[in-house]
């Protein structure tokens, strides 16, 4: 460890900031799994049958596309850039790449959930709308 100098406040402060990034992004995928991200459901509530299925598929497909392009591709590129170009955090001295890995990881989880939601909508997988009690750890295995 080449950077162990400075006051302990900095370590805890930096560590807690990085944990917030990890917690925030990981929990964001969990919240998506729980369908708890806020959305405007006026249109969806008006729809019935096939229409509703199509709209839901579109919504989850858009989310999947976003997470594949921005979170997964963009995130991997970000990790690569910061890792390969040797960006280190100032207090802990860890590669910023490690901090940023949370981005593509949450992207992978969200993408898997999006695909799963689409399959559920199309009736290719059993819907889990009723059983919403799974914890995040258990969730990671259902994809």
């Amino acid at each position: 460890m080449r950077y162990i100098i400075g006051s302990p406040v900095t370590f805890t402060e930096e560590l807690s900031r990085f944990l917030l990034i990890w917690l925030g992004l990981m929990a964001a995928s969990y919240a998506y799994r729980q369908r708890s991200h806020l959305a405007l459901d006026l249109l969806i509530l008006k729809m019935r049958g096939r229409q509703k299925v199509v709209l839901n598929v579109i919504i989850h497909a858009l989310i999947g596309l976003f997470s594949i392009s921005v979170l997964v591709i963009g995130g991997i590129q970000l990790v690569y850039v910061t890792y390969a170009l040797e960006q280190y955090s100032s207090a802990l001295g860890i590669s910023m790449g490690i901090v940023y890995i949370a981005v593509p990881l949450s992207g992978v989880a969200i993408t898997i959930y999006a695909v799963d939601f689409i399959l559920q909508e199309l009736g290719l997988r059993e819907s889990d709308m009723v059983t919403e009690t799974a914890t995040s750890e258990e969730d990671l295995h259902t994809g």
């Binding site: 100098i5 400075g6 006051s7 406040v9 900095t10 402060e13 100032s90 207090a91």
Partner: peptide, 11 residues
Amino acid sequence: VNILGGSATPI
């Protein structure tokens, strides 16, 4: 700063 005797605090 530490060598000069202070206690360096990066914020």
